[in-house]
């Protein structure tokens, strides 16, 4: 999950997110280089006592500063496209679950799995136990296996919502009347948090998403209900 004073992205939990983190760092390095180059050039031109008398007709420089940015843009665009198409890849999923956005909670359907259907509401602040995360914990978490390709079907029953888990690199709009598909393979167990990412009304900020990822062996034992 995100924590106070966090710099950068959350720790990756899926191969796609690893790619995104690497791409983020790659783009950031290019931005740093450009920033420092521009700052350095600014500093030089503002502090020098000399005056440039041949500022026009510098064809060579014109050519360089046209081609160089083009190359830099290609260096960003190609890895970006690669990840874009990797995200679209559907490797035969072993499991399908549905997530349906409502004002203002999520409903999950495990129809592959005994037809389990449940709602996931945010815990109201008055009901929090010590250690619970305010505005982030829910009453019913989505339990899913790690190291298995999972297909999420996402839709909405009323207005636009967006189902998001940053550490998995997922963000898929929930659109009424349309069924969106996204897939992921989680790499490590744990509890992962996300929040509705499409402004959907008064309680938009209060419909978080909580994923509980557990090893496949334990997942296969089936749901355990505790009170």
């Amino acid at each position: 999950m995100a924590h106070a004073a966090q710099v950068g992205l959350q720790d990756a939990t899926s191969p796609i997110m690893e790619e995104l983190v690497i791409f983020h760092d790659h783009a950031l390095m290019i931005i740093f280089l450009i920033c420092f180059l521009v700052l350095y050039a600014l500093f030089l031109t503002l502090t020098t006592k000399l005056t440039n008398t041949s500022i026009s007709d510098a064809q060579e420089m014109e050519t360089i500063w046209t081609i160089l940015p083009a190359i830099i843009l290609i260096l960003i665009a190609l890895p970006s496209l690669r990840i874009l198409y990797l995200t679209d890849e559907i490797n035969d999923p072993s499991f399908t679950i549905k997530s349906i956005g409502h004002q203002w909670y999520w409903t999950y359907e495990y129809t592959d799995y005994g037809g389990l259907i449940f709602n996931s509401y945010m815990l109201p602040p008055l009901f929090l136990e010590p250690g619970d995360l305010r505005l982030l914990d829910v009453d019913n978490r989505v339990v899913l296996p790690v190291e298995a390709p999972v297909r999420m079907m996402i839709t909405s029953q009323d207005v636009l919502h967006s189902w998001t888990v940053p550490s998995l690199g997922l963000k898929t709009d929930a659109i009424p009347g349309r069924l969106n598909q996204t897939t992921f393979t989680a790499t490590r167990p744990g509890v992962y948090y996300g929040q509705c990412s499409e402004i959907c009304g008064a309680n938009h900020s209060f419909m978080p998403i909580v994923l509980e990822l557990i090893p496949l062996k334990i997942f296969e034992m089936g749901p355990v209900f505790t009170l």
Binding site: T96, D112, G114, R178, L179, N180, Q181, T182, E220
Partner: peptide, 26 residues
Amino acid sequence: QEPPKGKWSTPPFDPRFPNQNQTRNC
């Protein structure tokens, strides 16, 4: 018609519906 317990059967990839939008597939 429910699959037997412990057996994982979920729809495989369908080349007719390769996109994110699966409304038609359903």
